[in-house]
Simulated assay, not measured.
Amino acid sequence: MSVSIRNFFLLWLLVQPSTSHASGKKTTVIVTNKLQGGRDLLVHCESADDDLGVQHLHPNASFSWSFRINFFISTLFHCSFQWESVLHKFVIYNARKDADKCVLCSWIVKEDGPCLVSPGTKDDCYSWDSLEER
């Protein structure tokens, strides 16, 4: 019996560091419409577990949501962005890449792509053509 308890404890120690973020802090994502010319932006974000619905953002308006990363650190939110006849998709949050660096993820959406905004640092902008590489 003590061997199985020992094995369980060793397994728990191995898994614990990689799941510490999943069991704790909430992550918040903010998306802000920064399209030029006063255009409205339709945003539809979803994960495998949550569909956040279509959000209608007027110029400079924001939409935000909070969540906890799942146990397997595989939480992934993707969004579609539409204005006039333009439609783009983007992975706005990927726990495997963002969990350690992004507890508050603030994005601005511009015509040429979204930018991750961090206070005190240069914006990290992506072109729509390279979105799946992020």
Rank of each mutant, 00 (worst) to 15 (best):
L11E: 02
A48R: 13
L11T: 04
S130Q: 14
A48L: 11
T75W: 11
A99K: 14
S23P: 00
G113M: 03
N70K: 04
K101H: 14
C102Y: 15
L35Y: 00
T19S: 06
A48S: 13
S106H: 15
L42V: 08
A95N: 12
S118R: 10
W128G: 13
P119V: 06
S64I: 00
E133Q: 15
C45V: 09
V15W: 07
V15N: 08
T27F: 08
L131S: 14
F8A: 10
G37P: 02
I108Y: 01
M1H: 11
H78Y: 15
L116I: 06
L76V: 13
S74A: 15
L76K: 10
L14D: 07
A22C: 09
V54I: 11
Y93T: 12
A22T: 06
D129Q: 14
F9M: 15
S127G: 09
T32W: 01
H78R: 13
S66W: 05
F8P: 05
V31D: 06
L76E: 10
R39P: 07
F67S: 12
C79V: 04
C115K: 01
I108R: 00
H78D: 10
G24D: 02
D100P: 10
Q16D: 12
D112L: 07
L52Y: 09
S80E: 14
H56A: 11
L13M: 12
D100E: 15
F71I: 11
P114C: 01
L13N: 05
I73E: 12
N94V: 03
E132Q: 15
F81G: 00
R6H: 04
I92P: 02
L52I: 09
G37A: 03
S106T: 15
L35Q: 00
D124K: 11
H44V: 04
K110A: 06
I92A: 07
L87H: 03
H88N: 06
F63P: 03
F9K: 14
P119S: 12
R6Q: 01
S85C: 04
L104P: 10
K89R: 14
T121P: 00
L10W: 02
S18R: 13
H78K: 13
I5D: 08
R134Y: 15
C125H: 10
N33L: 03
L131P: 07
K89D: 11
Q36L: 02
D100A: 14
T32N: 00
E133W: 13
H88E: 07
Y126P: 09
P17D: 13
K122R: 13
F8Y: 10
D50R: 09
V109L: 02
L10T: 02
F71R: 11
P119N: 13
S4M: 09
V86H: 03
C105Y: 12
G37E: 01
F77A: 07
L57F: 05
V103R: 12
S2D: 15
I5P: 04
R134S: 13
S80A: 11
Q55P: 09
N70I: 00
Q16P: 00
V31E: 11
